[in-house]
């Protein structure tokens, strides 16, 4: 009755939504936003290096960053950060055993606030300038 092949796809199963309940989706989104934000953080630091190269390099970059594509990307970062932060609050509370029986409602709340926050930012960014 022994077998050794683990019946899972490992890494890919983190993001497999099959048969997942709300908490599973919270986890999937949390992990995706984590990977995205980590990538953004290091990219951001690299870009800010242009600050040290003097005003011209930086101002050129800012001008380029006014394109809608950059705005959408920036919005994505904001949405990811909002979700990761709000869900993080939920996870911290849960980790101290606060509100675990209501973890689903807390997830829905985090999601709702993320959507609202993203819409507000989107409105500001697209109407600005």
């Amino acid at each position: 009755m022994k077998a050794d092949k683990h019946n899972s796809k490992g890494f890919w199963d983190w993001f497999n939504p099959a048969g997942r309940d709300a908490g599973g989706w919270a986890f999937i989104l949390n992990r995706l936003s984590a990977l995205g934000l980590a990538f953004y953080l290091y990219l951001h630091l690299f870009v800010l290096g242009k600050l040290a190269q003097g005003p011209d390099a930086f101002d050129q970059f800012v001008a380029a960053a006014k394109s809608p594509l950059y705005t959408v990307g920036e919005l994505l970062v904001i949405a990811a950060a909002l979700y990761h932060g709000l869900n993080g609050v939920r996870l911290v509370l849960n980790s101290f055993n606060i509100g675990v029986p209501r973890q689903k409602q807390m997830f829905y709340t985090a999601l709702l606030l993320t959507v609202i926050g993203t819409i507000i930012f989107a409105a500001r960014m697209f109407t600005a300038s």
């Binding site: 997942r20 709300a22 599973g24 919270a26 986890f27 849960n94 980790s95 101290f96 055993n97 973890q103």
Partner: peptide
């Protein structure tokens, strides 16, 4: 990582997700 899938599927009301959080 607090997916709470264990508690969602447990057929015997053990609620492992809650217990892991309590253990934390």
């Amino acid at each position: 990582h607090s997916a709470f899938e264990c508690s969602a599927v447990c057929p015997s009301s053990v609620d492992p997700g809650w217990r892991i959080m309590d253990l934390r």
